[in-house]
Design a protein around this nucleic acid. Structure first.
Lengths: 154, 154
DNA sequence: CACAACTAAGTTGTGCACAACTAAATGGCT
DNA sequence: AGCCATTTAGTTGTGCACAACTTAGTTGTG
């Protein structure tokens, strides 16, 4: 394979990934519109529904998002009345994000989302699980490589 | 599978995809830093290197991006001296994006990017090509579904 | 105890994605 | 020719991602 072909392949792969990510986002956008949530906000709500109230720090660890992204996002959820934020008494640095009644109730309406997404992909459960495994593998390889690249750059 | 398990699975899949997309972005960010390009800017440059000067419209079709995203992005590329923008003489609505000498020359330095990305993924060529096929399949299913959902919402 | 190192959250600034809108040019139709 | 629908860019506003920085609280060490 020559240089030109490599660049072409890179363009195709970049594009495929970028497009897939945006397409997923687009489907969630349409489906989540009913719930008044964006895709990242839905991710936060999913974690809270599953694990209960959490400090911003823990949320960030679960979702690999930093406070620069989470702080304003959680504030918007608070503005929508879905969560409350409360300074922890033991450690005043920490802010506990708590579901409100509305936030907890929204879970009922969210229960149909996964099925709608599944059917939107046209994949069956096994394919989804396989894809997920592959993506996770990719992510850990990429995270490690980014770390190595960053180290090399120093 | 009960509701709770569906929500958990959805969380896992959402997260995997979201994380993979961001991890890819992160690796490109580090590697492209040397070239002074962001990931979406690199995508635009790849198309221009491959296909020569193009109107904004054609760029948008290739990358599935609208003018709201492309206009400021191309302006930044122009600011960096990599492209020129020029109103078409035949059709004054159209703006032709042209590579400058610097823009064309940058291609030489970009030639190493695909190999570095490949090695960052830890995947071999066959796996990459397979993943790409799967992602494309997913994207077209999702695009069709989003369209159907949007239609249903009307 | 005092002070340095660290930690959690938030702020600021840049860039991208996308919806909704505007402005200008074009092309078709009567 | 005159008018209207369409097309192409661009603008505006919202939200997310992330780097760099700030602020305030906590912890460890001399």
């Amino acid at each position: 394979m020559n240089d030109t072909e490599w660049l072409r392949l890179d363009r195709q792969i970049c594009f495929s990934l970028h497009a897939a990510s945006r397409a997923f986002n687009g489907v969630y956008r349409v489906i989540l519109k009913d719930l008044g949530l964006t895709y990242p906000q839905y991710l936060v709500m999913l974690v809270l529904w599953e694990q209960g109230d959490l400090p911003v720090k823990k949320l960030g660890e679960q979702l690999r998002l930093d406070s620069g992204t989470l702080s304003p996002l959680v504030k918007r959820l608070e503005g929508a009345g879905l969560v409350r934020r409360e300074r922890s008494a033991e450690d005043e640095r920490s802010v506990l994000v708590q579901l409100t009644e509305d936030g907890a109730a929204l879970r009922e309406r969210a229960l149909e989302v996964p099925r709608r997404i599944m059917s939107a992909t046209g994949f069956d459960l096994a394919e989804i699980v396989d894809l997920r495994a592959r993506l996770d593998q990719l992510t850990s390889a990429l995270d490690a490589a980014a770390e190595a690249e960053a180290r090399a750059a120093r």
